[in-house]
Nucleic acid binder design. Structure first.
Lengths: 403, 403
DNA sequence: CAATAATTAATTTACAAAATTAAGGAATGC
DNA sequence: GCATTCCTTAATTTTGTAAATTAATTATTG
């Protein structure tokens, strides 16, 4: 929806500008903020006073300068509230409680015994108080819950329109959970959520245009354009893994044939490795990594081939979308240069102009943080309309209507 | 740049909302405008009063209703000013003067004898008064000049960063022309300009997310996201024609090998047709169309193959960007269903979800209109910062700084 | 068929929100 | 003390909203 312009919107815009400046660049004095944003000092004082009262920012210690009154650094109080994030996988759920900078303060992993929506909602709702207790921050309130899963999510970020891996059609999971735990709940595709986290507090922190490549169970991408996640007209953007790799090839989970992810996802690499070596279930990612470090030619060749194939397909994406940087995540990144070097080579050989830098994300809790980022994101982007209740707790004021 | 929020911005936002409503939906009464946008009637009165005074909108004839005071329709006065558009091709320039709805009121075509920047700038500058005279609207002022060309254009829309077809590197063509004719001048990639025109007054008028496919001398695409042209981090988005089609294949104008456009652009189709038939220069687009209508199997097969190939590549684009609609333009569209049906078939066979509708644009002056749309666009999008002088003539007020 | 009521459109007026400008208080080094 | 820089306060301006008012037109009625 297009925003109309009134005083409230103006205030919300400035509020967002200030919060994002502090997020990107760390503590800043009011005077600094005023000059960087181009706002009058008085206006900054007013907005900062609001933020201070709400507890979203705090004043730091004034540091000595050359002369004159010392500037008081203002910084975001990331401890002000907690966010809960759930990353749904086919047979397990990664659960975290984080501060507002998506730093985990509590984590657990539970088995997912089935995919019945009500069962899942019950399970998640039960975990929330446990996580909050585990976090041990009795003063911090719960800002909301973010859930990430593989699939197409509706524009309101409340329901899963379609997920092949969960066999879901139009499951309003966020609403189901929100009716059990009475805080805002948002749902998002896992790669999208990951991209949001990377843009807010990860490798894309300084960039307003970025692409995210995720190679794990599947292959997927996400686009951040002008600092905002691009979801496509139907929330179905980023289905990069379903790029055609081989005409009439192997059957993919999506029902089509020859998709890239049917050949070169981490899962597919392992499958092909097992086929080639003739060995069975005992070969996992761990073993593949070992084989690579010990110079096993079959493994090296196979992983290199996948890197090149993904890099080639990625070049097309780069030619079309021209991102500033590419952040790479997912299990396959742990295969290191055996995977990334062929990927980068294929990429730069095929891009129309110089290929953007590809930044691998080595952290292994990034994905759960992504789910929590769905909550913290709402603080920094006033345009996102609420999928759930009680937006005021997030410090988002006016100009949007909560459902 | 990110906009700060003050009263001026608020007014500019509402102004844009009203103008875009009138553009999309035609004449509307003030009362209608207020309810649709959610603004108070008073606010609408104020903004409309401004617009009336500037001459950008005019009041129409009140039409009888069921009861009560008759609403006065307010509509955009597209005759208020003229826009000049130049479409630069390798050996010719398509020139138009249009009203503010990009409807041509004068047109000509001149030969381009060379690619020296100053020669081109002189040539264009000389044509401007001729076109304006030819338009025969002594009262309408010249709002600006738009120039479209194949290549990568800088963010300010003033200079060509790189064009293979023109052999240009960092040529500030817009500035060169602006220093000769003292009106605002904007430069843009030809497919991007075409996309802007289609979104404002063409087939994409009702859509905020669309993709444009252009198949002519080259193959290219453009993306409109949230009502705004997406240019990429370096203005190099949309290089769809340089998607890999055949590993180590035919040399492309970009210096790489095997690009899609080296095989399936209109130009390449003609080349392949000549090769297959063994006939020479006398075979043009006209002849190919005739061969198709007369059922020539070689031509049908060749064009169908190109359609399928482009459709397959386009499916990847759709899977990644999920547009609402696809508008297809360029010379190849004139090949009709022989080209479009295989394209659509390949597209829907390979898209992850249902393929978006593909709307062919049959008009042959759309491209020149695209250049002129670079000017009219500034009226409807206040965020675009000016590349040149005298933005006030366009009715764009405040909140942006003209260079 | 004129007079009046009802209805809808547009404008005016009073008020509120928020940014700016300008002036002044606060803190600090010299 | 004094210059300097940071922050705040007060007055002013812009602009939107709400509510009352004026305007224009149709419907109703004696």
């Amino acid at each position: 929806m297009k925003l109309k312009g009134d005083q409230t919107t103006a205030r919300a815009m400035n509020r967002r500008l200030i919060l994002n400046l502090l997020r990107r660049e760390g503590p800043r004095s009011r005077a600094d903020i005023a000059t960087v944003i181009g706002l009058s000092p008085a206006a900054v004082t007013f907005v900062v006073a609001d933020l201070l009262e709400e507890g979203i920012v705090v004043e730091g210690q004034a540091v000595p300068g050359p002369a004159g009154r010392r500037p008081i650094p203002v910084e975001i109080n990331y401890q002000h509230a907690l966010a809960v994030g759930f990353k749904l996988m086919v047979d397990a759920v990664e659960c975290v409680a984080t501060d507002l900078a998506t730093n985990p303060v509590a984590a657990m992993r539970v088995r997912l015994a089935g995919h019945d929506p009500d069962y899942v909602a019950d399970l998640l709702a039960d975990i929330v108080p446990e996580l909050v207790k585990l976090a041990g921050r009795p003063k911090a309130k719960l800002a909301g819950i973010g859930i990430s899963m593989p699939g197409v999510i509706n524009h309101e970020q409340t329901a899963c329109v379609r997920s092949h891996r969960f066999q879901w059609d139009n499951v309003p999971l966020a609403s189901l959970v929100a009716s059990r735990v009475h805080v805002p709940v948002w749902l998002e595709d896992d790669t999208n959520a990951y991209a949001i986290a990377q843009q807010l507090f990860g490798l894309g922190r300084q960039h307003r245009n970025m692409a995210v490549l995720a190679v794990g169970v599947g292959i997927s991408c996400a686009l951040v354009i002008d600092g905002k996640l691009y979801r496509g007209a139907n929330g179905a953007a980023g289905k990069f893994g379903h790029t055609l790799f081989e005409e009439d090839g192997r059957l993919c989970e999506c029902g089509k044939r020859g998709c890239l992810m049917a050949y070169h996802s981490e899962l597919s690499m392992l499958r092909r490795w097992r086929e080639k070596t003739g060995r069975g279930e005992d070969l996992g990612l761990q073993e593949l990594r070992q084989a690579l470090t010990s110079g096993d030619p079959i493994a090296t060749d196979l992983v290199g081939h996948s890197g090149r194939s993904i890099g080639t397909a990625l070049a097309n994406l780069v030619n079309i979308t021209d991102p500033e940087v590419i952040v790479a995540g997912g299990e396959a990144v742990s295969l290191g240069d055996h995977f990334l070097t062929p990927l980068r080579d294929a990429l730069s050989a095929r891009t129309f102009r110089t290929a953007p830098p590809l930044l691998p994300d080595w952290e292994d809790n990034s994905w759960a943080r992504g789910a929590a980022a769905l909550v913290t994101q709402k603080i920094f982007d006033f345009e996102s309309s609420g999928g759930a209740t009680d937006i005021a707790t997030l410090g988002v004021r006016g100009s949007t209507s909560a459902a």
